[in-house]
Amino acid sequence: MKCQNVQRRRCRRQEVSTSTAAPRSLPTFIATAAASTISTICCCIWLLLMHAPAPTQTRRLQRCELAGQLYILDVPKSELSLWLCIAHYESRYNTHVVGNRNADGSSDYGLFQISSRYWCQPDNGTKYYAFNECNVKCSALLLDDITEAVACARTIQRRQGWSAWSVYSVYCNRTLNEVDACFDGDSVEVNVKGSVEK
């Protein structure tokens, strides 16, 4: 009997110590789980940041700003009005515009809406054959630095003439506003539509 009582007391002590030990270890469990969750979240954020595509610098240019950049890139002053007209109607002077997909699966890129079928190389695989006559990636035509876009557009114009752009015959094959105001040092800007902004 005495042995049984001693054994019962030991069992009760173990039960009591187990029941009191559980609450004491609960905060440790929560702290460990919280640390593990925070670590997982940080890893996920890190992975997202590392594998996120790099932002492309793009912007909408002003008419005279584009005229100045074209002139710096050796576009003759006599052609500036035509280039500005084409850029206005093709992209509204936006460097980042990618047109709707064409029937053959290609798209048109940048200020001058240059076709990925003939003139630039798309970054991903294509179902059609890309000729890449400008020897440039299509993504380069979407950059803030318009050097590649202008070089490719001028290549197209030399090979196919102004009619390479469908907007030429509709909007740009007529008397256009001169760009002299852009180079006068005045703050007056003449739109392709003919209205004057200050």
Rank of each mutant, 00 (worst) to 15 (best):
A67I: 02
D145A: 13
R8W: 10
R63Q: 11
V150E: 03
L66V: 04
T147Y: 07
R24C: 06
V97I: 12
C42L: 08
A153P: 05
P53R: 02
L49C: 07
L143Y: 03
R59P: 00
S187T: 14
C11H: 06
L26E: 09
H51L: 10
R117E: 10
S19L: 09
E15C: 12
R117Y: 09
L82D: 15
R59Y: 08
S106D: 05
S19T: 03
P55M: 07
A21T: 04
Q4I: 10
K137F: 13
S78Q: 15
Y89C: 05
C134R: 04
T58A: 12
L70E: 03
S139R: 14
S25Y: 08
I45P: 00
A181G: 08
W46A: 02
K198L: 14
R8Q: 13
Y171Q: 09
K193T: 13
L143W: 02
Y128L: 08
N135P: 01
E90N: 07
R159H: 15
G99E: 06
N132E: 11
W83A: 09
C182T: 12
Q113L: 02
K127P: 00
G105L: 08
S91I: 04
Y71D: 15
Q121M: 09
K127I: 08
Y93E: 07
S195V: 12
Y168W: 15
T56W: 04
T175P: 01
V150R: 01
S163T: 15
C3H: 11
K137M: 11
T175S: 14
F131G: 03
L49S: 07
L73T: 03
R59A: 09
C64S: 10
Q157V: 13
A22H: 05
S91C: 09
V75M: 13
Y93A: 07
W165C: 14
R63P: 03
C172M: 02
V150Y: 01
Y93R: 03
S166E: 08
D186N: 15
Y128V: 04
T126S: 13
A21I: 00
L49A: 05
F183Y: 12
S39R: 01
N5K: 12
W46Q: 00
V196C: 12
A153H: 02
A149I: 02
D108H: 00
R158D: 15
V98A: 04
Y71I: 03
V190H: 11
T37W: 06
